[in-house]
Design a protein around this nucleic acid. Sequence first.
DNA 1: TGTACATCAGTGAACGCGCGTTCACTGATGTAC
DNA 2: TGTACATCAGTGAACGCGCGTTCACTGATGTAC
Lengths: 202, 202
Amino acid sequence: MAGKTQTKTLILDVAEKAVLEKGFEATSIEEIVAALDISRSGFFYHFKDKNELARAMIERYINAENELYDDLFARARELDDDPLHSMLIGLKLLAELLDDIPNGHPGCIIAATAYQDRLFDHGVRELNRQAILGWRKRFRNMFEDIAEKYPPKVDTDLDALGDMVSSVAEGGLILQRALGENNTVAKQIMQLRQYIQLLFAK
Amino acid sequence: MAGKTQTKTLILDVAEKAVLEKGFEATSIEEIVAALDISRSGFFYHFKDKNELARAMIERYINAENELYDDLFARARELDDDPLHSMLIGLKLLAELLDDIPNGHPGCIIAATAYQDRLFDHGVRELNRQAILGWRKRFRNMFEDIAEKYPPKVDTDLDALGDMVSSVAEGGLILQRALGENNTVAKQIMQLRQYIQLLFAK
DNA sequence: TGTACATCAGTGAACGCGCGTTCACTGATGTAC
DNA sequence: TGTACATCAGTGAACGCGCGTTCACTGATGTAC
């Protein structure tokens, strides 16, 4: 079936979509295989059990998100080499990207699993933890570069500021989903951008 | 059993805790009744089905949250009648309250259900929507009062700013849960507070 | 080039278990006359 | 005050269904000699 061997990828695609809509436990293997026209045992050829699906799905999500941030802020740096300006450009690009998704961003797998964490083993929870710590470090480093050139108006915990990028994105996605809107998260990112501007700009 | 008739309340307590740990689908009626030493049918005396448990749990959570905000910002207003100062005091009180919870805030039921919304009927989703719109309005009104006395440094979408309180709280809770920390959300609220200060203060 | 074997990507039937829900019943307390 | 009935807060056994998982098998493609 399915041309070459992208079945495993297709399983992950379908699973990700379903998990964002109803959570991991409520996403049955049956519905995944039904959507792909394979048998239940076909699923178990690719994943030894459901927990392995969770791990693969989360790993893939984190890698994709990291790549997206890499590309986006590299591009921003190309457009303006100044640390503050490139951060502001990066956040604007992020907001635009989120705004341009047709039916709104489908949500974050990490947030979805954060409220179901007793379902997963220690390894999966550690994966999530490291991803968030990675983002904290990524943005903290960028804010340190900025602070060197533009001393902040008020003394600020740069770890907390780094976390705020994730926090506002995750929170904005929850509001967006619950409201049934599709530009809430973009607006929240723009608020964060304005905070950064007020905090650092001369 | 259980002294007077608080069994229904106890069911909601146990369910809420369990839902925040593993989600609604993975929370079985069996585990709830086992924790309370009643039979499965005892549960069905109080709730006609599992969806009614969801609705009651979410309604109760929203009411409690609204009362908390009412009390907290009323108290802040008692301490200082100025709209900006009382908002800043209110956010500080909120951060302290979140910081003082022994093992960290257990999480938000609305966020938990936002990533499982296909499990619930339209009524439940509408409940969540109205709660978030209520918070938007609550904080927007406060920011309007502030803006009248302290013109913001930059023109700002006050709906988005109102949403930011919920957004930063929800996002902070996700990070806190995923990181296994217990003061992340308090720090995020303090960052938001600093933004408001920079935006409005003379 | 032909044959033997290995690997890949699955199929189909069966399993046991736990889940939400129903149903007839119960014992204690409250209320009417 | 006594009796009859109603309500409250459940119990215990049974139900059918869907779930994750296992197992023996298969047909197509790849590789060795």
